[in-house]
Write a protein that binds this DNA or RNA. Sequence first.
DNA 1: CTCCAATTGCGTCGCAATCGCAATAACGCC
DNA 2: GGCGTTATTGCGATTGCGACGCAATTGGAG
Lengths: 150, 150
Amino acid sequence: MTNSANSDIARLCKEHGLRLTGARKIIMQVLLKSNDHPDAVELHRRVSKIDSRVAIATVYRTLNMLRDKGVLERHTFADGRARYETTDNEHHDHLINVETGDVVEFRSDEIERLQEEIARAHGFEIVNHRLEIYVRPLEKPQRRAGRAKA
Amino acid sequence: MTNSANSDIARLCKEHGLRLTGARKIIMQVLLKSNDHPDAVELHRRVSKIDSRVAIATVYRTLNMLRDKGVLERHTFADGRARYETTDNEHHDHLINVETGDVVEFRSDEIERLQEEIARAHGFEIVNHRLEIYVRPLEKPQRRAGRAKA
DNA sequence: CTCCAATTGCGTCGCAATCGCAATAACGCC
DNA sequence: GGCGTTATTGCGATTGCGACGCAATTGGAG
């Protein structure tokens, strides 16, 4: 299992003319197995668990590099910290659970299309966009007047 | 012209039980006449032009206060800095011209509705949302292959 | 005019992110 | 395998935005 990931990482580095260093290996390995949307500090925490010598500056540098190469995407949600995810084939937007911080991905072709329309109507073309919906779990339908207990 | 603005400001302060101080008068006056979406530093720059003694900390404090009172909205676009605008009656989203930094407001009921749908479909209710479309002016239709001149 | 709490200005802090630089380590070459 | 070159790293310091503590100032009610 680590095998395929390893070769992916090696290939990625080769393709972009980057040295396959220890820090890079670990950081990319952690990234690839992260399905959530961790921030740099959280990533550093996970990386440190594997090799505590890796500096957070290196995490930031690697993250920026991978973003520049198009391997990663960086999102800055309302809490301020930047969070990362590996670029996937298809664009998507985010639902953010304000109670837990969890992120759910979604995609709406209809919204995408409407955005295009709006931009064009204003004489623009879209470079990029971001749509974040901050949400809270729906109360389960209750028999009586539900009251959230403190 | 300064008159009506002045009374607006005075009224705002009264309504919220705030002292009508010199700094406040200037900051609010600058805010009311700003149609763009300035950040705190830019606001401070403008305020300083009127009274250079006003500290940026006061600008931040006033901005936060006004946001808490619902008079202002704070947006954090992709560049990181928070930008402010006076709250208007109706929610809107933003088109941001990446070449100039200019901001255009728009609203799409259809997009709003779709968001509701999506959130509900995932078992959430919307607390808040933000949609920013980063755009670039459409090339004017040209006769020949248009080339943006440097 | 007086008094006192609200407000301000200044300096400092906190946090995320970046940077400069000396030390280290990939990797092409032999 | 050993070498030399140069990218990369770790460290500490720094930046930039924003917030805060505190002493000095100042609205504005009486």
